[in-house]
């Protein structure tokens, strides 16, 4: 609220500032709001005004062999890569939270580095060493690198969750006779689960949107949805791409809602906020 004693200049600034922020919000949302309606356009131009309503571009997406194949590939590669990242990242984060050793800072930096190193370098480097051992143009090679790109997200989110974790609970479980495995699954995991899941969602989002490494490492049979989109945008941008874009946006919105729910649950469990 503007105080009553504000000078005219301050009043102008107050409104100008809010208009500026409004414009930034429009800038952020505009592309997402614009492309979705065009995927229902009746004719084949990505232009407004639209000529009519039609589902033909969704039909084309579902019936075209190339699009369907790439969608299936994404559904193979991303979930497996995510599970691998979660399976490797969660225990590592637990371990890192519990012990100190020389070189721990360096190791942590290496575990986080896939998030920072330019993806082109990762793509070229993995192609260089994977091609001679038959891992380029294979699902396995692609899954391994996608998992590596997702691991930092799992490690950082689980580490963040563990900061509020009371390790006396583990001691209590052990002293009551639970073996380490039971303790992990019955005590540790349920508490860090929101961190593991949000890390997994980040990893899935990364893999599901990954195109550069896939360009270098995947053969034509492993082409994923983003790679197919990349090729489509480069050749000729059609309403089918708008349809795929809309489907992907719906997916990412669902992921965002899940994450937000997890965050709120975490806050409630820690007794913060309401």
């Amino acid at each position: 609220m503007i105080p009553a004693y504000a000078t005219p200049l301050e009043r102008v600034w107050y409104y100008a500032f809010r208009v500026l922020c409004g414009l930034v919000l429009v800038f952020l949302m505009l592309p997402i709001l614009v492309i979705a309606p065009l995927s229902f356009n009746a004719d084949s131009f990505l232009l407004y005004p639209m000529s009519g309503f039609s589902l033909r571009w969704y039909e084309e997406f579902l019936t075209s062999a190339a699009w369907r194949q790439s969608f299936m590939n994404s559904l193979i590669v991303s979930p497996i890569a995510t599970l691998l990242a979660m399976a490797l990242g969660t225990p590592a984060a637990v371990g890192l939270a519990r012990i100190d050793f020389p070189g721990k800072a360096l190791l942590t930096a290496i575990l986080i580095s896939p998030m920072v190193v330019p993806v082109v370098i990762v793509g070229v480097a993995t192609y260089l060493v994977f091609a001679p051992i038959g891992l380029s143009g294979s699902y396995i090679g692609l899954i391994l690198v996608h998992a590596a790109l997702g691991v930092p997200f799992v490690v950082t989110t689980v580490t963040a969750t563990l900061q509020g974790f009371d390790f006396n609970l583990v001691r209590a479980a052990s002293s009551l006779g639970a073996n380490p495995l039971t303790t992990f699954f019955k005590v540790t995991l349920p508490i860090v689960a929101p961190g593991v899941i949000s890390g997994g969602l980040f990893a899935f989002g990364t893999s599901f949107d990954e195109v550069v490494v896939t360009l270098f490492l995947a053969g034509p049979e492993q082409s994923t949805l983003p790679r197919q989109m990349f090729a489509g945008i480069r050749e000729n941008i059609s309403p089918t791409i708008a349809a795929v874009a809309t489907i992907m946006t719906v997916l990412s919105t669902l992921m965002l809602i899940t994450l937000e729910g997890l965050r709120r649950r975490g806050e409630r469990m820690r007794g913060e906020g309401k």
């Binding site: 919000l25 952020l28 949302m29 505009l30 592309p31 997402i32 614009v34 492309i35 065009l38 990505l46 989002g205 599901f208 949107d209 195109v211 983003p226 989109m229 990349f230 945008i233 941008i237 791409i241 708008a242 874009a245 992907m248 946006t249 990412s252 919105t253 992921m255 965002l256 937000e260």
Partner: peptide
């Protein structure tokens, strides 16, 4: 307001590139 920031953040880079081509053509 945060949702307005996070939704584009979570949207695929390729989707946004395609959308900008459509907008700016």
């Amino acid at each position: 307001l945060m949702i307005f920031v996070l939704l584009p953040f979570w949207t695929s880079v390729l989707v946004r590139v395609a959308a900008w081509i459509v907008l700016l053509q």
